[in-house]
């Protein structure tokens, strides 16, 4: 039995410790925000936070997590009370198919926990590991800029003005 600290609570799963976190979240804990995209750590659809860092849940074995805190997009807010990053994504309507977006939100959350005043380049570099195929990049970037402002900071040199 593996014990995990997920979204502020304790979760248990009877799985092989080598199982990547993503399968435990989706199949055992019923947390569907993180998505399977490649299983190779190349696309970021599975991104979640472990402590405050973004990780590819499709690669990280659950047995390696220990007591570190796992945060998924479910832990950031709900449809009734969305978190500030989720709210920024909604305000910018940053989604087409939406499949990559939970990974994007997790990655943006990790960036903003590190700094709320990144440069445009730092923001883009932080988001770069996550792929979007619909071409929603501009809206995702607008949402991250907006979320930075909501956190009391802001992108130092935004390429587009924050509405």
């Amino acid at each position: 039995m593996i014990e995990l600290n997920v979204n502020g609570g304790v979760a248990r799963a009877d799985v092989d410790p080598a199982t990547p976190l993503l399968y435990v979240l989706r199949d055992d804990l019923g947390l569907h925000a993180a998505k399977f995209g490649c299983g190779l750590g190349q696309c970021g659809a599975c991104t979640v936070l472990v402590d405050d860092r973004p990780v590819f849940a499709c690669l990280l074995p659950v047995g390696a997590i220990g007591e570190r805190a796992v945060t998924t997009v479910e832990g950031l807010g709900t449809t009734v009370e969305p978190g500030d990053v989720q709210r920024a994504f909604l305000q910018e309507q940053a989604g087409q198919c939406g499949y990559c977006i939970p990974g994007m939100i997790a990655r943006a959350e990790a960036l903003l926990r590190r700094t709320t005043t990144p440069t445009e380049e730092e923001m883009r570099a932080a988001m770069a590991p996550s792929l979007c195929r619909c071409g929603t990049h501009m809206r995702i970037l607008r949402a991250v800029r907006r979320a930075a402002v909501a956190r009391g900071g802001g992108i130092v040199d935004p390429a587009e003005p924050v509405a």
Binding site: R26, H32, V73, E74, T79, Q86, L90, Q93, G98, I105
Partner: peptide, 18 residues
């Protein structure tokens, strides 16, 4: 606003994959 985005942005099951 898109009717499908709130569920997708908060991790509710939204796809055949889910």
């Amino acid at each position: 606003p898109r009717v499908d985005l709130p569920a997708k942005l908060t991790g509710l099951p939204a796809y055949v994959h889910d």
